[in-house]
Design a protein around this nucleic acid. Structure first.
Length: 611
RNA sequence: GGAGUCGUAGUUCAGUUGGUUUAGAACGCUGGCCUGUCACGCCGGAGGUCGCGAGUUCGAGCCUCGUCGGCUCCGCCA
């Protein structure tokens, strides 16, 4: 029989005891075959599941020889009768394990070459091979579950935001390159020789313009592009849930977003997240957790001990104090059991973050065991132990360095210790809004303050004089210590949502007045002319009755990582890039022809060593 | 740009201090047998440029250097 016009009756995973005695048509892939010489069992699979179909020589007669030729991943159409499996052969592990389909007729719709790897859940395959044959990798039930979840997430987001009055838009992919932020991906503009489009790092400016246009509440599931190096949680193209609303307070924004996030966790995970989420000021987060995206599933925390060591004769500490650095301590309960080797490993671990050392103190009855213990008087020892609330059997780690190094090193060590010591439930979730971000952060490399969020972020209005003080005479502050710089203390109206140590989303209230935006540009050394050239359209729009507005964006891929318990973003992206930014399946990027280059007026000029 | 780590059969891996035979195992593949399996089973078979290139050595899968690729991290990522 020709199955071309034979409609599929059910998906494989949907056939149950309710269908017994029905004659049905199934189509799918041969997942596994068990050929007994006589009778043959095939597990027919599609995206919904697996159904056992039976090829019986007494039923099929002439066609039975063909059934012997079936191989893994052949594409089949079968017609047969659903029947209860014989006594003792019911498979309780299978959703459809109560029944089977006795094949009366079938057609091989397509054959398959021998696979480069097995598609079952038992065999683990290295990632480069999975990526090269991504179309097969994605055929695995395990992967299909992830992308069903991704679909579900999209649906919940659309419903939840639409129900809350948000309007979905599509904004351009070919946009204008802007300074600041990440490196742009560029696209030559054939119709404007010598000019280039940039792919959007986010729809930031467009959504602000939609607020100016009066749409009041906007959202988009947007693809964003940033040409920077990749990480386990970072791809050059990624998806954001982009949100913006007019006339709102940060608290209203939190309310909309918490509602959305709770809907997502409820629908996708079946979990009720308690509301409202914790609010944690940036400064407190950096001090206690060494991070602006702390993992709060466990309660290790860092203690400031700079002042305590001011009058202690430890040279490495006093040097740090003299340079206005910080000394901070991290207590690990029960950590006195760590071996010298383990401590050495942790010392090497914090070295990655530029920490020049890791001091340690094991807490014993009435004394500390440490190479540095001899420098502490009994009174100082007691004061130190009390300050970090240490108990006998604990270990206290100390990093003394520039504030950034101390935060990075102890923040990373905190995560590492918690993970090594299994201090948290990997299935738990901790949500926290990180608030009161500084508007600017100091760049050690460039010796200047740059926006810590993006240059459209509004700030607390009482801090405007600090901005004006700097802008009035920037040269005056060229050589002042960064801690004394007027821009250091400017508080942004920005917020991030940190989940399990990941930054899942972030946003801010935006600048909505052209004069205020100009002040910000001057503070970050973007001149009037450059501002007009790069952002003239925004300044223009802000001058035509732009309403106060703000919003935020969520990393969809990171959200899915969290929902699925994945530690790698490639697992939730259908066709991801490798760490070197290539696609092993299509072999993109690739060379193009001279004719193509000529058409867009580009000459390639590689440095000698890459030619 | 930098650091670490991995690269052996189609796949996942083992391969000791540089020398034990023809570089092994499991799964997959393949030929045969098998009418109640469900990661079917049993008997047989094929399958290798040890990522690539130099070097050290009487001798290299193993040591050295370079290079390519995967992954993790630092820098970078508003």
């Amino acid at each position: 029989m020709d199955f071309t016009n034979k409609k599929r009756s059910y998906y494989c995973g949907q056939v149950t005891a309710a269908n017994i005695d029905e004659t049905i048509v199934l189509k799918g892939w041969a997942h596994s075959r068990r050929d007994h010489g006589g009778i043959i069992f095939v597990d027919l699979r599609d995206r919904t599941g697996i159904c056992q179909v039976v090829f019986d020589p007494d039923v099929l007669v002439d066609k039975f020889a063909t059934a012997h030729g079936l191989r893994d991943e052949y594409v089949l159409a079968i017609e047969g009768k659903v029947r209860r499996r014989p006594e003792g052969t019911i498979n309780a592990k299978m959703h459809t394990g109560e029944i089977e389909v006795l094949v009366k007729d079938f057609e091989i719709l397509n054959t398959a070459r021998i696979l480069p790897f097995k598609l079952d859940d038992y065999a683990k395959t290295s990632e480069d091979i999975r990526l090269k044959y991504r179309f097969l990798d994605l055929r695995r039930p395990e992967m299909q579950k992830k992308f069903m979840m991704r679909h579900k997430l999209y649906q919940v987001v659309r419903k939840s935001l639409s129900d809350q009055g948000f309007i979905e838009f599509t904004t351009p992919i070919l946009t204008k390159s802007t300074p600041e932020g990440a490196r742009d991906f560029l696209v030559p503009a054939r119709l404007s020789p010598g000019n280039f489009f940039a792919l959007p790092q986010s729809p930031q400016l467009f959504k602000q313009l939609l607020m100016v246009a009066g749409y009041d509440k906007y959202f988009q599931i947007a693809t964003c592009f940033r040409d920077e190096d990749l990480r386990a949680n970072r791809q050059p193209e990624f998806t954001q849930i982009d949100i913006e609303a007019s006339f709102i307070t940060p608290e209203e924004m939190f309310d909309y977003v918490e509602n959305l996030v709770c809907n997502v966790w409820k629908e996708c995970k079946g979990i009720d997240i308690p509301r409202p989420f914790k609010r944690l000021p940036y400064a407190e987060s950096m001090l206690k957790y060494g991070s602006d995206k702390p993992d709060l599933r466990y309660d290790l925390s860092i203690t400031e001990v700079t002042d305590l060591f001011r009058d202690v004769e430890i040279k490495v500490f006093s040097n740090v104090i003299a340079k206005r650095g910080r000394i901070r301590a991290l207590r690990l309960p029960g950590g006195a059991a760590l071996s010298r080797k383990q401590i050495d490993d942790y010392t090497a671990f914090v070295g990655v973050y530029d920490a020049k050392g890791l001091a340690w103190f094991k807490v014993q009855e009435n004394e500390l065991q440490s190479p540095l213990a001899k420098f502490l008087t009994p009174e100082k020892t007691a004061e130190f132990v009390a300050a970090v609330k240490a108990e006998v059997g604990d270990i206290i780690f100390i990093v003394a360095d520039r504030e950034k190094v101390v935060c990075d090193a102890l923040g990373a060590l905190r995560q590492k210790l918690a993970s090594d010591m299994k201090l948290y439930d990997p299935k738990a979730f901790s949500f926290a809004w990180i608030v009161d971000f500084p508007l600017f952060e100091y760049s050690e490399r460039d010796k200047v303050y740059t926006p810590s969020h993006h240059p459209f972020t509004a700030w607390v209005s009482e801090d405007t004089p600090k901005m004006e003080e700097y802008v009035a005479d920037p040269d005056k502050f060229k050589n002042v210590h960064p801690d004394d710089h007027p821009l250091k203390g400017v508080r942004a109206l920005a917020y991030d949502l940190a989940v399990n140590g990941e930054e899942m989303g972030g946003g801010s209230i935006r600048i909505h007045r052209a004069d205020v935006q100009s002040l910000l540009f001057r503070a970050i050394n973007i001149g009037e002319e450059e501002a007009q050239d790069k952002f003239g359209f925004l300044l223009n729009a802000l001058s035509f009755g732009a309403p106060p507005h703000g919003g935020l964006a969520f990393g969809v891929d990171r959200m899915l990582m969290l929902l699925l318990g994945e530690t790698n973003i490639r697992e939730v992206i259908a066709f991801p890039k490798t760490q070197s930014g290539t696609d092993l399946m299509s072999e993109a990027p690739s060379q193009i022809t001279d004719a193509q280059l000529k058409e867009v007026y580009i000459k390639v000029d590689l440095p000698p060593e890459t030619k």
